[in-house]
Design a protein around this nucleic acid. Sequence first.
DNA 1: TTGTATGCGTTATCAA
DNA 2: TTGATAACGCATACAA
Lengths: 350, 350
Amino acid sequence: MRRKVTLKQIAKELDVSISTVSKALRNSVEISEDTRQKVQAFAKLYNYRPNNIALSLKNRKTKTIGIIIPEIVHHFFSKVITGIELVANSRGYNVIVGLSNESFDKEVINMQMLANGSIDGFILSISKETLQQQDYHHFTETINQGMPIVMFDRVVNEIPCDKVIVDDVKGAKQAVEKLIGNGCKHIAIITTKDYVSVGKLRTQGYLEALEDHKISPKSSLILKVDDKLLSENHLEALEKEIEQLFKSNKNIDGVFAVNELYAVTAMKVARKLGLEIPKSLQVISFTDGVLSKHSTPSLTTVSQHGQKIGEKAADLLINRLELDESAEEEEDIYETVIIETELIERESTK
Amino acid sequence: MRRKVTLKQIAKELDVSISTVSKALRNSVEISEDTRQKVQAFAKLYNYRPNNIALSLKNRKTKTIGIIIPEIVHHFFSKVITGIELVANSRGYNVIVGLSNESFDKEVINMQMLANGSIDGFILSISKETLQQQDYHHFTETINQGMPIVMFDRVVNEIPCDKVIVDDVKGAKQAVEKLIGNGCKHIAIITTKDYVSVGKLRTQGYLEALEDHKISPKSSLILKVDDKLLSENHLEALEKEIEQLFKSNKNIDGVFAVNELYAVTAMKVARKLGLEIPKSLQVISFTDGVLSKHSTPSLTTVSQHGQKIGEKAADLLINRLELDESAEEEEDIYETVIIETELIERESTK
DNA sequence: TTGTATGCGTTATCAA
DNA sequence: TTGATAACGCATACAA
C-alpha cells in the first residue's frame, strides 16, 4: 500500500528542498528546466496531489459549500442539491450536506459542526421547527462571523443574506386562476398551517385569485392540514380530513393543493367518492415532482424549478465568497432572486 | 463583524501562552484552577470552537465521509444518504456528497477531488457508465492509497472492499413466486440491459422462480429496456415498448418490473389496453419508493430498505476507519453484508 | 503550573 | 537557481 505522497517525501527522494519541489510543480520560472522536469516526472509517477486540508488551512478557505436542508428524500430538495452541485463543481467547489430533519436542534448542531472551518459558506432552507420557534440566532451568529449564507425557498426576511425563492403567491394565484378560467366555481385549497411560510404564501395567492375574480372565499373550503400528517404513518388521517372536506362541501369542483402529496391524496379520495377528474373535479398542485408526472390522472402542477434555484443559490454564494476576497469591505447589499414558476398542464385539468 | 477567534488570540488577550489556553480548554490537570476558569470564561464569551481544518491536518483525519452516487433525485439513493448521514453524525462524522451523474469521468474526477485529503473514506454506488466500461482503476488506486471504500447496491466483486447489497436475486424470486402463488401463469418481466448489475440479478431471480415452478421462460415475455428510456423525455418510447409487449402477448397476467417507473408505466399502459389490476393483471415492482405508495392502484413492491443500507454502509466504513487507527496492520478481510428485502403488499396484487 | 518547540502539508517571502 | 523560514490553527512532548 502506497500512502499518499507529500512534498516532503518527494524532496527527500530527490534530495532537494521542499520549496524547490513546490516551485517546480507550479512551474515557477525560478527553477531550472532540469530539476523541474525531474520533479514533475517523479510527482507524476507517484501521482502526487496537493493535500486539500493543508491548502485549506493555508489559504483560510476550504472551497466547499455547506448545505443544510430539512430532508433529502424529497424531490424538490434533491433537485436543488443537483443544481448546487452542478455549479459548485464547475466553479471548483465541493458540497457538504447536513440534514436538519425539520428539527431546530439538529439544524443548529449541524451548522456549528460545519461552521468551524469546514466550509466557506452556507446554502440552506429553514426547518419547520425553526420557523415555528422563530429563533434565528444561529443564522445571525454565523453571518456575524463573516460566513455568508444563502437561503432558499423557506426563508425569513429579517436575516441579512442573499435569498432565492419562488414567488409562491404568484404561482398559487396563477394556478387558481387557471381553475377559475376552466370554469371552477367552488375551489378548495388544501394547505398547511400558517407557520410554514410557503404554505401561508400559497394560501395568500389562492385568496388573491379569488378576490380578483370577485369570488368570496369560504373558510369551509380552506383546509389547513397539520403537517404532521405529511409523514407516511398518517396518510389515513390525511385522507380522512380531505374526505371530510369533500363531504361537507359537495359542490367543490376545483382543488388547489400546496404540495403533491395533498393533491394525489385528494384525487384518491375524490375518486373514492365517485368524482371524475378532470370532468367534475379539477386539481392543481404546487411542486412538480415524480408523483405528479406518474399519477393517474397525471397532475397539473406549478413547477418551482428546483434545480434552477440550486444553481442560482450556488452562484450567489460563490460570487459573494470570491468578492470578499478582493474587496474586503463587505457588500452589505443582499439580493433576493425570484425564480419564476411555471404551470405545467397535465390531465388533472381540462 | 467578529471573525472566528483562535487559540492565539485568546492567548494574547489573556497574556498566557497558546498551549496554556489549549490545555485549559481541554481541562488538563496541569493547569491551575484559576487560569482554567479564566480561559474557559473567555473562550465561552467569544464562542471559541477549535478549527476543524487545523484538527484535520494535525490528526491526519478529517472525520468526514465522501459519498459518490449516480444521482440524488432518486428515492432509493436519497434514502441511503439519510441512513449514512444518520449514523455518521451520531458517530461524529460529516458527509460530503459528489454526484457522478452516471458518468465515468465525473465519477473519477469527483473521487480525485475528495481523495486529496478532504475525506477519510468513501461510500459509493457505481455509475452505469463505469459498469459498462468495466474500468475500475480509480477504485483500486484509492484503496491502494489506504483510503477505504464501502460499495453499496451497484457493486463489483473484483474490488477488495466492504459491500452492502440487497439480495437482488432472492428479492426478485420472492416477488415472482408471489405472482405465481397468486395464480399468474404468464409472467412478464420488464428489466434493463444486462450491464446494469442489479437488472441482471433481478432477471436471474425471475428466471429461477419460473424454473423452480416448472414454468419455462419465454423470451418474448422478457423486455430488456434500454435504460436511456428511464429519462423523462423518453417516457413515450418506454410506453410504446411496453405496449408492444402486451399486444404481442395477450395472455400476460403478471408483470414483474425491476423498478417503480417501469411498473407504474406498465400499469398505465395496461389500463389503456383495458386490463384491470389486479383482477386480470397483477404487478409487482422492485424498489419501494414514493410512486408505489401513491400510485393507483398502489403497488406491491420489493422494498430494499435504502436507509438501512446507508446505515450499515456508514457503520462498516467508520468501523474500518477507527480500526485502522489502533491496529495498523490492515484487516484485509472484507465483509459483504446483505440487507434482506421485504415484500410490501399493496393493491396491485390479489 | 506554565511555556517552548515541533509537526501536520502547503505556499510565499526572503536569503544565499 | 535553490533553500531556509514562517505562517495557517491546533495539540502535545518536553523543558523550565
